[in-house]
Nucleic acid binder design. Structure first.
Length: 476
RNA sequence: GGCGGCAUAGCCAAGUGGUAAGGCAGAGGACUGCAAAUCCUUUAUUCCCCAGUUCAAAUCUGGGUGCCGCCUCCA
């Protein structure tokens, strides 16, 4: 059982090998904090979350860094529109960011460095590049000299001639070559700026990730994640800067997630056809949104629509029903009998192996969800059989299967959440009392009262199901 | 124009050489006081088209068609 990951750099699935034994260092491109993030961003945040959760399951120690871009043109423009400082703007949307990812059950990164707090690191890096001839100053700007870095284009599989032929690059008198990109830009009046060897200015976009990943993860680390659109130019430039600086490979595995499309078209802020994650979370339960985001392989594009979300809700609900059923059974006393737990035990073994195999194959969450459904189906078939009885042996097997749901549905995929947390010592006995009364009415064929109890509990958000083992209830 | 990716049932979707997972929707049946939940049967002789390699191809090769993305801020 070996983990394989698709590396954008090689274009192939590779066996995953860490630099340090059982330790993984991950850097992810985070948001520019000038607005609420959209559902496409949510996917980009979900990918490292899944990777971290699974690597943790496999026994790795994970160190995860995600940056906040809190200074760039968009930040400055938006702050001016709102009449607040860039920093106030950043603080507002960093707070919102944490609120939204928490609802999505995305676990926090270990470190969230801000660009504005690492200007010195960036200046130092740019300085080094200038000294080594990889960069040049021009009227207060500093540009990266692309022609000097012979491997430029290795990530996005482009060569310099093709790029020039495309030539939608901004032409500037300040640049030696249209493909050169800015590392440091001289500030205009009224813009936030920092002192540097080249005068007052602010960093270019790409340099922050090179500087901050180096600061927190070192000159070499395992995984770098981001959306496919960052492949070029952002990550290509990042490679150029970082590798020119330290003269060796910096990132071992580049992982890129696919887009979220709207009606088959890319969703983006510039096209205007986007939804903020916040809007969507106000319309759908967060676990449904999460389920939707991981119901395809992370590299495939996914199409966003109400129909897809409804589909996800139903698919997830099916798994929840089975887990609730198992919980109800585990709360009961065992009965004497000779029903063997062996069949369930072999189902447990088989599905566990399939789940690991799925996640080992480049984090195939879509396949893993399919396996969870297979598992649910086997359990349902078994416990709904007329000859079913909860023997001690059966209960032990069910506990193991519950553990599998806990490991994969709850911990690794994060799609099942505890819903009964609000209960206290009073609620359970009270509901049991009501259900006992209802059961007596049913035995007396007083179905009107029985149904009224069920309906009124339903209004309170408590769903009641009658089963051969008695009534079961769960919070909706 | 250059580069990259994708094409699997009504819909979503997994599957990279061994005879098509899973979910949703549909049809029929079982269980139930009624519900809910669940189960069973059924829905792709076939994976965009053509040719080739192979005992064997959805999977590999060549050609074609269609769609998408990147080359510009973007997850």
């Amino acid at each position: 059982m070996t983990l394989k990951v698709y590396n954008s750099l090689s274009g192939e699935k590779e066996i995953f090998k860490t630099l340090e034994d059982k330790k993984v260092k991950i850097y992810s491109c985070g948001p520019t904090v000038y607005d609420y993030f959209h559902i496409g961003n949510a996917r980009a945040f979900m990918v490292p979350d899944i990777i971290k959760r699974y690597l943790t399951y496999k026994g790795y120690d994970v160190l995860h860094v995600m940056n906040f871009t809190d200074i760039d043109d968009k930040m400055i423009n938006r702050a001016n529109e709102e009449g607040i400082s860039v920093q106030e703007l950043a603080n507002r949307f960093i707070t919102a960011f944490f609120e939204d990812i928490e609802r999505l059950n995305i676990r926090k990164a270990d470190i969230y460095p801000k660009a504005t707090e690492h200007i010195d690191d960036m200046i130092e890096m740019v300085n080094r590049l200038v000294e080594d001839g990889f960069a040049y100053e021009s009227n207060g700007d500093v540009y990266f000299r692309v022609s000097k870095f012979s491997e430029y284009g290795k990530l996005s599989k482009k060569n310099l001639d093709d790029l020039v032929a495309g030539a939608r690059v901004e032409v500037s008198d300040k640049k030696e070559n249209p493909l050169d990109f800015v590392l440091w830009k001289a500030s205009k009046d009224g813009e936030p700026s920092w002192e540097s060897p080249w005068g007052a200015g602010r960093p270019g976009w790409h340099i922050e990730c090179s500087a901050m990943s180096k600061r927190y993860l070192g000159e070499e680390f395992d995984i770098h994640t981001g959306g496919v659109d960052l492949t070029f130019p952002h990550h290509e430039n990042e490679i150029a800067q970082s590798e020119a600086c330290c003269d060796h490979k910096v990132v071992n595995y580049w992982l890129h997630n696919g887009y979220i499309n709207i009606d088959g078209e890319k969703m983006s802020k510039s096209l205007g056809n986007f939804f903020t994650t916040r809007e969507i979370l106000n319309k759908y339960p967060a676990e449904v949104v999460r389920f939707f985001l991981i119901s395809n392989h992370y590299r495939s594009p996914i199409n966003f629509s109400d129909q897809e979300l409804d589909n996800s809700a139903k698919s997830l609900n099916k798994l929840e029903n089975t887990v609730n059923k198992i919980d109800s059974l585990l709360a009961l006393e065992v009965v004497a009998g000779d029903l063997s737990g062996a069949e369930l035990l072999s189902v447990y073994q088989e599905k566990k192996e399939k789940l690991i195999e799925a996640m080992d194959d480049d984090f195939n969450t879509a396949l893993a969800i399919g396996v969870l459904h297979e598992l649910a189906k086997e359990v349902n078939r078994f416990v709904n059989n007329p000859t079913f009885e909860l023997t001690a042996e059966v209960k032990v097997s069910l506990e193991k299967i519950k553990g599998l749901f806990d490991n994969f549905a709850k911990d690794v995929l994060g799609i099942l959440v505890e819903k009964k947390e609000g209960n206290n010592d009073l609620v359970d006995p009270l509901i049991s009392l009501l259900l006992d009364v209802r059961e007596k009415s049913r035995q007396n064929k007083n179905y009107q009262l029985a149904d009224e109890i069920r309906d009124r509990l339903d209004e309170l958000g408590i769903e009641v199901k009658d089963t051969p083992q008695g009534a079961e209830w769960s919070l909706k």
